[in-house]
Design a protein around this nucleic acid. Structure first.
Length: 430
RNA sequence: UCCCCGGUAGCUCAAUGGCAGAGCAUUCGGCUGUUAACCGAAGGGUUGUAGGUUCGAGUCCCACCCGGGGAGCCA
């Protein structure tokens, strides 16, 4: 007899099958024992009735503890109150692995305790729903870029120096010298875009920021497309199509998970083209109208992002920020030297910045002066400057933070649940 | 790094400066339809750590450690 995955039991009504899984809860009522079984595909209840079973098997179902792994044989029956519509009348049970004093009981627990037990917390329904949505988001990202003709180019994780600030770098020994964990694959994607036209990378990035907020991890995943000959407006079109694609994919494929998370789906259904596009100047105007006095020239914090996103039901693209607050590689606005041709995308409902990007500076001399102005070591960027020396073209790209995207789509307050094993300033276990 | 809050049983939390408690989990017993089942019983404590005030400290004071929330910075 073959093993059936629980999600497929509907094909076996009235038949005897075997399943393998974990007992996540047990209830009993004298001569009846109810075992709740999870196998990763779904959950089902196995019912053991004393009258139908040899004593040793019935007694075994009484002794079973939370998270014991088992092999169960029984008959699939319709059951009205079951989430999947079926239960199993237990005929036989074998214990695969015992489980003694499982720490996560089916009652409430604090965040610290759950994070200490993250390796076990992953088994909880809510955590599985979140990580399945993360999986769907990543799947949709790969599909989107495949369909759009992008080439996946893996960026290195060891890097010789910073591409943005140097204060947030994780330093590590690299034989006789030092290396740093990557903060972004962007500069490498710019090189690859000159070879393939349309490229993206997808991988972990590291920031040694001593920040303790619901939006920060020290290790997070980022997807970074880069396209030769795209200007900032093409870039915004790409970001818009990309986000719509991701949200649609999740809506179509993760109904059950969104439901379990009690996500208000109507909010996600409003993620359609066109997105709001406003300049930094217009964003400042909105803020001032709403009583926020952020002066021109300052970057936006979480509060400002929320205030702006409240005005729209779609994500908001804010472009042309003051060059002062943006990275050296951003192209300067030909009409106003003080502005950078960059764009941030702010998620709705106060989830904050999920995309940062823009058009890159393709002019050798301007780029060189920016590197000097930012006090960056010129020699570290010699290869990057080469890209401006040999057939430089306008090009644009952006980075999407996976964890913030998952938090937004799942409707989560904190990014720590959006990644299987979060790395935070004060937490690197398990 | 700064501001605020917290740390008591395995977990979630109570306890006017005066006997260390409950629910869940665990173990034992009961129940033929349970849905975080229910009912009865038992075991389980260096009150984060180190000082101090006091006849007496979980409670007040001080330092440190750990955690949570927020800010700055960012995706």
């Amino acid at each position: 007899m073959n093993f059936v995955r629980i999600k497929d039991v509907n094909k076996y009504e009235g038949q005897e099958i075997k399943i393998k899984g974990w007992v996540y809860n047990k209830r009993s009522s004298g001569k009846l024992h109810f075992l709740q079984i999870r196998d990763g595909s779904a959950e089902i209840q196995a019912v053991a009735f004393k009258g139908d079973l040899p004593d040793e098997i019935f007694n075994l179902t009484d002794k079973i503890t939370q998270e014991t792994s088992v092999e169960i044989q029984g008959i699939v029956n319709k059951h009205e109150r079951s989430k999947i519509g079926y239960e199993i009348a237990l005929k036989d049970i074998k214990i695969i692995g015992e489980s003694c004093d499982y720490p996560i009981s089916p009652k409430e627990h604090g965040v610290d305790f759950l994070m200490q037990n993250r390796h076990l917390w992953l088994r909880a329904p809510r955590q599985r729903a979140i990580l399945k949505i993360r999986h769907a988001i990543i799947t949709s990202i790969r599909k989107f870029f495949d369909e759009e003709g992008f080439v996946l180019i893996d960026a290195p994780i060891f890097t010789p120096s910073a591409c943005e600030g140097t204060t947030n770098l994780f330093e590590t020994e690299y034989f006789d010298t030092k290396a740093y964990l990557t903060q972004s694959g962007q500069l490498y994607m710019e090189a690859a875009a000159m070879a393939f036209g349309k490229v993206y990378c997808f991988g972990p990035t590291f920031r040694a920021e001593k920040s303790k907020t619901r939006r920060h991890l020290t290790e997070f995943w980022m997807v970074e497309p880069e396209v030769a000959f795209n200007d900032i407006y093409d870039n915004m079109d790409l970001a818009e199509n990309f986000l719509v694609y991701i949200v649609n994919y999740v809506l179509q494929n993760c109904k059950e998970e969104l439901d379990l998370l009690e996500r208000d789906i109507s909010k996600l259904e409003k993620i359609k083209k066109p997105f709001a596009r406003i300049t930094y100047d217009e964003a400042i105007e909105i803020l001032h109208k709403k009583g926020n006095e952020t002066p021109w020239g300052e970057d936006f914090g979480g509060d400002e992002e929320t205030l702006i996103s409240e005005e729209f039901e779609t994500p908001v693209m804010i472009y042309k920020y003051p060059a002062e607050v943006k990275a050296f590689y951003m192209k300067q606005d030909p009409d106003n030297k003080k502005l950078a041709m960059c764009v941030d995308v702010i998620a709705p409902e106060g989830y904050g910045e999920i995309i940062g990007g823009g058009q890159r500076e393709e002019n050798m001399n301007i780029l060189l002066s920016k590197i000097k102005k930012h006090n960056l070591p010129e020699e570290a960027f010699d290869w990057y400057l080469d890209l401006r020396k040999y057939g430089s073209v306008p090009h644009s790209g952006f980075g999407l933070g996976i964890e913030r995207t998952v938090a937004w789509i799942c409707g989560l307050h904190h990014v720590r649940e959006t990644i299987p094993f979060p790395r935070l300033m004060d937490r690197i276990r398990p």
